[in-house]
Amino acid sequence: MNNQDDIILRTENLTKHYGGVHALEEANFTLKKGEHIAIVGDNGAGKSTFVRQITGVEQPTSGDMFFEGKQVEFNSPLEAREAGIESVFQDLALCNDLDVPSNLFLGREELLFKFGPFSILDEKKMMEKAKEVLERTAIKIPNLSNHVGDMSGGQRQCVAISRSASFASKLIIMDEPTAALGVQETTQVENIIRGLKEQGVPLILISHNLRQVFDLVDKIWVFRRGRIVGEVIASETDGNEIISMITGMQGGVHEKDSYI
């Protein structure tokens, strides 16, 4: 049994139905402080649905969620962010027509003068902080004043990740962070993830790339048809076992080296 004090996130029987579609069924999940875990599964296994519930993008049909020992209900992504849960979404949640600092600080702008929606922005401070944040994550962006839409896929993903990594977050969730990236850009993103491990920031990684999963995480949670079908320590398993769990077929599908 896990020591309750060590656990940062726990879900109990978390369930999500979209009408007659049972996208997530009774997910019981735990994440320890400082732990990096991966969620793997086939398309439609419920991985992204699970993430949408714990990040407040959607609200679960039933079940409970505990963050830092307290029961929580996130009615919006903002509530999850305020609690310290940051997400990098599969579809790159960036505004192409805004520059890097505007994207990094979207929804939590630095202000010169507070007056509700008409608060005046402190652009200089945001630019300074953006520089600090990106220097910390060693991300190379040629010009921070450029619109994000003018950047390469890798640079855009780095901006999205550094946004999550930069705001004293207590938990970071990445949904397929390297799916659209080239080899060099993928390496850059993986290095950021390793940096988060060193900093002790817990991470949930959703990835189809098993090589990446084995390289980066401590534990692997396997989803199949909306259910959690297993949790295994990464160093105590192999690609073949994971594939068997993902597909539900026993007895090695291929040689394990072909997956890792």
Binding site: F89, D91, L94, C95, R108
Partner: peptide, 12 residues
């Protein structure tokens, strides 16, 4: 106007 989904997940 640029990306409504991104603005939503940013908490706007």
């Amino acid at each position: 106007g640029s990306n409504e989904q991104a603005a939503r997940v940013a908490g706007i």
